[in-house]
Design a protein around this nucleic acid. Sequence first.
DNA 1: AAAATTCACAACCGCCAGTGA
DNA 2: GTCACTGGCGGTTGTGAATTT
Length: 355
Amino acid sequence: MDMGMGGGLDELEVLAMSPGGSAALAAAAGSEDEADLRRGPWTVEEDLLLVNYIAAHGEGRWNSLARSAGLKRTGKSCRLRWLNYLRPDVRRGNITAEEQLLILELHSRWGNRWSKIAQHLPGRTDNEIKNYWRTRVQKHAKQLRCDVNSRQFRDVVRHVWMPRLVERIQAESAGGAGGGQAAAAAPVAAPATTSASAPPAYHLGPYGGRRQSTDVVVSPNKAHGGYAHADYYSYSEPGQAAAAAAMSPDDTSSAMRSTLTDASHGPQHHYATSAATPTNEGCGGAGGAAAGPTTDSDDMVQEEEEDVFAGTWSELLATAGRDDDDSKIGLPDFEFGDFEDNLWSLEDLCLQQLC
DNA sequence: AAAATTCACAACCGCCAGTGA
DNA sequence: GTCACTGGCGGTTGTGAATTT
């Protein structure tokens, strides 16, 4: 694919992406709509236009919305910006261990159905989950020289990564009160949506890459139910440290657990049997294409006919926390080392004959 | 300290399905 | 039936920060 940003920028695009490029672009491009459209990173001004317009008029037809709001963007671009970034309930930042576990599990069931997976992770966007998968999960697959859809890698995920995530979740829960090392690795993103009392906050600004430290949080204007113009009242620190400080690891874990089992966000996820079933169910077909995600229709049927998760998250964690090994939800025993980013080693996997 | 590399993420694209004229 | 428009989805890429050499 060599179109769009990948195909190199023409002069207009370069103008558009430069600071203050909008005016320059308009001047250079003339009055035609097509050429008048801006591309590239959104500016604070554009974000404000979009946020304020939606606050006043709600979401609607995106193309007309873009025009009415005075944005020189396509409707698609506005929609994406809103859904992935500006929406008040969007959560960004560290993916928690619970969320990682859920992503791994759901991906094993549905494959790259990012939007579907995202529906089960409140506040997370399909784009973020997709990015997580590509940057983290596929990286591990690459390290192991496995194809990400291969049976070997799926086994590794199920037998090594998932159990370790469960361990990590337990450690975080246990460490929440005492604030041990697990606390240091605690999730930091606070669910913006689930707080009934807190007004939504719009995260404006960018703007690209890892510049979260420059994010601007725009508070809603509670007085008239709209959202204040350029009402910058808070600058979040890198990694949303402020939010992290406001929520202990334990709080986060319990919040996530309750959120993840909230029927309003979709079917409850019962993890235990899925994690406990060491791929015998899917093992018959061996590798290759058969190891890949099942088809959509198959999944839908499976989802409706059987819930592969047998217990709630709380139950899972409680069960997994028992000392008696036989009750450890059927997960294979591993020597759980540190909880650094590298959740397994090649030696581990060789020992387990997984890869 | 500078250069090179890696990482994380925003934003784009094409494709496709749904809808209405 | 068909055409145009719109929105949603998954795949891909460019970019800047962070890390390593």
